[in-house]
Amino acid sequence: MKVYFNNSCKICKAEIDLYKKEKIDEINWVDITNNDQAKIETKKDSKELLRRLHVEKNGQIFSGAKAFLLVWKNIPKYKFLYSIFSLPIIFQIFSIGYEIIAFFLYLKNKKQIKIN
């Protein structure tokens, strides 16, 4: 599984660093900052990559809240988050909340990378 994240965003980096500490061999962490290979692999442009977290699993790309569920599901310490946030009603609220926060983080960080 590959997790595409924005290492140039301090908030994003801090959260991903927590997950990386768990040293899950099955997760490959990919910084999207000015990363042309990430654009090719995900078939997304810089703006789309910067806007949300993305996960590639079994050849399929997942974005936003669904991507977070996959990350949590694959890290034993955080699997409880998957159990809670994957419940249908909670997932809907989580998705909306994620999109709002991701939008403001995008606005804050979009100047840090070249947008193509």
Rank of each mutant, 00 (worst) to 15 (best):
W29F: 15
V71D: 02
K47M: 14
R52N: 15
P76Q: 03
I75N: 00
E48F: 10
N58W: 02
T42A: 10
N28Y: 06
Q60T: 15
A14T: 11
W72T: 03
F80E: 05
N109D: 15
I40P: 03
V71K: 03
E41N: 10
I100P: 10
Y106D: 04
I100E: 14
N74M: 05
Y4H: 01
I89F: 15
Y19M: 09
N34Y: 06
I100H: 09
N116R: 09
I27Y: 00
P76C: 00
S83M: 14
I61C: 10
K79T: 12
I84R: 03
N34F: 07
Q112D: 14
G64I: 05
C12F: 02
I89D: 02
L50Y: 05
K66C: 06
N7S: 14
A67N: 02
Q60M: 12
L53V: 08
D36N: 13
E41A: 05
T33S: 07
I96V: 13
E56R: 11
A102P: 04
G64R: 05
K110E: 13
Q92C: 11
A65R: 00
I90G: 09
V55M: 08
W29L: 11
I115R: 04
F103Y: 15
V71I: 15
D45C: 13
Y78L: 11
V3Q: 00
